[in-house]
Design a protein around this nucleic acid. Structure first.
Lengths: 216, 216
DNA sequence: ACCAAAATGTGAAAAATGTATCATTTTCGC
DNA sequence: GCGAAAATGATACATTTTTCACATTTTGGT
């Protein structure tokens, strides 16, 4: 067989970041009514080479054929989209509300069941039909309900504490927007987003480009 | 000299993504009143090895010393933080509002001057003191005002069009939150964020972990 | 001021990632 | 249904990225 997926156990971050893009473009092509998808077509749309697309698919165990439905099904399986994911959001600020109002996820089986905040003012209120609960009840909630993913949109100083409680509550993953670097471990997966960092990376690229223009 | 920064011209994405984290942690340490920073301390806080920190600094041309102020100053220079950056946001939806209400950037010289939307209902309104303008006036605005960075929080189908107008308007960078893969070129730098992709990557990691648990 | 301990800068080795190649398979027009 | 053209799967190769090793420099205690 010689397939890397079977002995490596953990696929590279680079690949893990490309997979959702493959899924996204396959869904678009499916919606466009395309009958066939080729690695060359994915190359054009996504920007990486067709060889890389094929290599990625190979690394992931290979797909039966390149029909849009097959590909979507196969990628769904890899990404865990077939299952339902129950999420809660910690922090009812602007970012929290923005994430709740995103409708994109729902079609892929991601559901937000509750929002938690420490501001008593919110008590009993709802956002987009989702109840806002007091964060003091978080542990009880986790004990009583199945929660797969916790979304952290709190300030930095409480993020670590939320992570601890999530682990104790048997949560599988944390989607962290607080500006701290939470770490994955064998109990929980963490995805740090760091919006500010991303803006600084952009600023860096702009700066770098101008620097080289001046050098010539 | 043999310093890579001088002949490579473009630093790797991996490094470009780490730089903001260095900056963030140096700022925290500075606020904590630390007198000295070591590569080992950055290792503990960020998670990558001290060797990588040193290698990264070396690749970027090297820093005079590891005093917090020097480091912050040096990283600021690399990231282009010393200059003022004028930004506008396209799309006054939830995400747009969330970004506008972020106060984190301002301290680093990033200012949001205006918001654009195609919904006439918003005309004349403000968000956090920032005026909402009609998107039809975007081109005129770009011609009349210095805009460094355009933030796209629109639906996917208009993102490409906004990019074109940004290029024509002399904008240096685009921070794109629409679920399309806009590309950088020699006229403009693009940073795609793709929140949904990041959630799917998390889902993939959770799924992958469970898969291997079942295999043993 | 001196010595020991710790930290840095740098080149080179090792590991990881991406690209190119090509035999085999599939598709498509006739 | 046949043959040319195109696309894939898998290996080999090249490049990039990370880690290692260690001479040199800096720090901190006595």
């Amino acid at each position: 067989m010689g397939n890397k997926a079977l002995d490596k156990r953990i696929l590279s971050d680079a690949l893990a970041r490309r997979l959702p893009a493959y899924y996204r473009h396959v869904c678009i092509m499916l919606a466009e009514g395309k009958q066939t998808i080729t690695s060359g077509e994915l190359e054009k749309r996504i920007g990486n080479t067709s060889a890389q697309v094929r290599q990625d698919f190979f690394t992931c165990g290979g797909v039966e054929n390149y029909h849009p439905d097959t590909l979507k099904e196969w990628l769904s399986g890899l990404l865990g989209i077939k299952k339902e994911h129950h999420m809660i959001v910690i922090g009812a600020g602007n970012l929290g509300r923005a994430i709740i109002s995103f409708k994109d996820f729902n079609s892929d089986g991601f559901f937000i069941d509750a929002v938690f905040d420490n501001n008593l003012m919110f008590d009993g209120m709802q956002i987009c039909g989702i109840p806002i609960l007091n964060v003091t009840s978080l542990e009880d909630y986790l004990a009583a309900n199945k929660v797969d993913i916790v979304v952290i949109t709190t300030p930095a100083n409480v993020a670590e504490e939320i992570l601890e409680k999530s682990i104790k509550g048997g949560v599988k993953g944390v989607w962290n927007f607080a500006p701290v670097d939470l770490r994955s471990n064998d109990k929980i997966e963490v995805q740090n987003v760091h919006l500010s960092d991303s803006l600084l990376t952009l600023s860096f690229r702009i700066n770098e480009k101008e620097f080289w223009k001046n050098q010539i």
